[in-house]
């Protein structure tokens, strides 16, 4: 371990998110992208956040780093990272240090998160310099270790440009960049979108192994229930900027309570069992106008809606230990 890193305890860190509100200012008015989200990210666990496009999950991810892009704006709430403080109120300089050193972020595989004009190795050095790391040799050594750990030819990768790497390799480089400063909380935003099945499985396997080895706290954001169900310990379901359901993965998969969660699970095609179990989720994700209805956001697509679902919005509340749901039918259905 490099000397300039202060002795850090390797107890996994958790995160507490309270009443987080993010709005987007558009020409159609203010859109609540994240609307009153509260949750605790369990230390040392993999938490999966699942939602469709437009559910606010990526905005939530950026809000956790206090890095919501314009025209978005965090209006309210707190994001407390154990040992680092509230990301929304700490000093800007400290916050920039926290990003990268305490919290690592892995961008979508389809996005070009790497600078196309700079070799990977140089980007590692740039990252180190921006965090005032003096022993850059040790940093490069750690980058190599990580790359080799992920089954890659580290020397070659560090000398490569982005376009010389395949999608799966780029994603591993992204994970390396997120972890090279010894971050203990890692946020992965759609890490396997645009990857084919085998690359996806190997990236997920790498995330799983590194998570265990380094006692990380991992947040996995995805639209793919399969990916979350395979990797995560806990699942949080987002819909229209709000939380719909949360619980342990086994619980959510085996006994989903929210009709939306039930729909998501049923919509996964499987490779075993009868085919007619798979049923398409009807309708489209709510659009801007639909977010302003007084009732439940899912009501228009819900096969189990009640008359009152149209008029008032159910409260997201605990119904057991670490089990939450926002539905009037609460525990009553299967």
């Amino acid at each position: 371990m490099a000397l300039e890193f202060e002795a850090r305890d390797f107890h996994p860190r958790g995160m507490q998110i309270r009443d987080l509100h993010v709005i987007y200012q558009t020409n159609q008015g203010e859109i609540p992208a994240v609307n009153g989200v509260s949750m605790a990210i369990a230390p040392g666990k993999i938490t999966g956040i699942i939602g469709e496009s437009g559910s606010g999950k990526s905005t939530l991810a950026m809000a956790l780093m206090n890095a919501v892009p314009k025209p978005g704006r965090i209006v309210k709430g707190s994001v407390v990272v154990d040992g680092a403080g509230d990301m929304l109120t700490i000093d800007k300089k400290i916050r920039q240090k926290v990003r990268g050193r305490d919290i690592g972020f892995v961008f979508q595989a389809s996005q070009n998160s790497l600078n196309p004009l700079i070799r990977v190795g140089k980007q590692v050095l740039d990252l180190g310099r921006s965090h005032n790391i003096k022993d850059l040799r040790a940093l490069l050594r750690r980058a190599k270790e990580l790359l080799e750990r992920m089954g890659m030819d580290a020397e070659r990768i560090l000398l490569s440009y982005q376009h010389e790497l395949s999608g799966g390799m780029r994603q591993r480089v992204g994970i390396m960049l997120a972890l090279v400063l010894e971050a203990q909380v890692v946020i992965l935003d759609e890490p396997t979108t645009a990857l084919d099945m085998i690359s996806q499985a190997s990236v997920l396997e790498i995330v799983r192994q590194i998570h265990q080895e380094r006692h990380l706290t991992t947040i996995l954001i995805s639209h793919d229930m399969g990916v979350v169900a395979d990797l995560a310990d806990n699942v949080v379901v987002m819909y229209g900027g709000e939380l719909a359901e949360a619980g342990s993965t086994e619980e959510i998969l085996a006994h989903p309570l929210h009709p939306y969660t039930q729909g998501l699970i049923r919509a996964i095609p499987r490779i075993s069992g009868p085919l007619d179990q798979a049923i398409a989720l009807s309708g489209s994700p709510p659009d801007v106008a639909a977010l302003k209805v007084p009732g439940c956001l899912f009501a228009s697509r819900c096969p189990k809606r009640l008359p009152k679902c149209e008029n008032s919005r159910p409260i997201y509340e605990a119904i057991g230990s670490d089990r939450y749901v926002a539905c009037f039918r609460g525990t009553e259905h299967d």
Partner: peptide
């Protein structure tokens, strides 16, 4: 093997293997 396993609903096949080497 690369098809995700739904924890809570499915058990992984006993011979499942994830190749780490890329294409």
């Amino acid at each position: 093997s690369a098809v995700p396993v739904l924890k809570g609903l499915e058990d992984p096949g006993p011979d499942r293997f994830i190749p780490l080497r890329g294409n």
